[in-house]
C-alpha cells in the first residue's frame, strides 16, 4: 500500500499549518457536520456577499486528511463567485468518488489535486469530504435564506 500517495507533502503541510482556521464574523449560516463512524467534527460558517464567497471560517477536529482538506477548500473557495465555487465543489466531489480513476484538473483544483490519492482509500474519502459537504450545506442555506 503506497502511503506516500495518500500523505502528499501538501496535505501534511496544510495539516500542520491550516489556512483560514477559526470562526469569524460576519456570516449568514453556520453548520455543524460530524462523521458518525469516527467522530470527526467541523463547525463551519460562510459569508456570501453579492454572489461572492467572502469568507469560509471553521473550527474542526479530525485527522490530517480532513484538516488539510478543509484548509485547501478555504484557499480554493474564498473570493470566488458562488457558481464557480460550486463547480470546484463538484470537481472535488467527482475526484473523491472516482475510486482513483479520475484525473484531476489542476487549473480547477490547484492544491486539491493532492487528494487524488485519497480516492484509493475508501475509508478516508469521508474524511476528505466532511468540510466540503458542510460548506455546500451552509451555502445552500444562505442562498435559500436570501430567496425567502
Amino acid at each position: 500500500m503506497d502511503l506516500d500517495a495518500l500523505y502528499q507533502e501538501i496535505i501534511l503541510d496544510h495539516y500542520k499549518h491550516p489556512h483560514h482556521a477559526g470562526l469569524r464574523d460576519p456570516f449568514e449560516a453556520e453548520v455543524h457536520h460530524v462523521n458518525p463512524t469516527c467522530g470527526d467534527e467541523v463547525t463551519l460558517r460562510v459569508h456570501l456577499d453579492d454572489g461572492v464567497v467572502r469568507d469560509v471560517s471553521y473550527d474542526a477536529v479530525g485527522c490530517s486528511i480532513s484538516q488539510a482538506s478543509t484548509s485547501v477548500m478555504t484557499d480554493l473557495l474564498i473570493g470566488k463567485d458562488v457558481d464557480e465555487a460550486m463547480t470546484i465543489h463538484q470537481a472535488f466531489l467527482e475526484l473523491m468518488q472516482g475510486k482513483g480513476q479520475v484525473e484531476p484538473d489542476e487549473d480547477v483544483l490547484e492544491d486539491g489535486i493532492a487528494f487524488a490519492g485519497v480516492a484509493k482509500f475508501p475509508a478516508r474519502v469521508k474524511c476528505a469530504l466532511l468540510s466540503w459537504m458542510a460548506w455546500k450545506d451552509a451555502t445552500t442555506q444562505t442562498i435559500e435564506k436570501e430567496k425567502a
Binding site: L3, L6, Y7, C38, D40, G62, C63, S64, I65, Q67, F121, R124, C127
Partner: peptide, 9 residues
C-alpha cells in the same frame, strides 16, 4: 498524530 492517521500508517 490523529488516530486515523496512526491506524493508516
Amino acid at each position: 498524530v490523529h488516530p486515523h492517521d496512526v491506524a493508516q500508517v
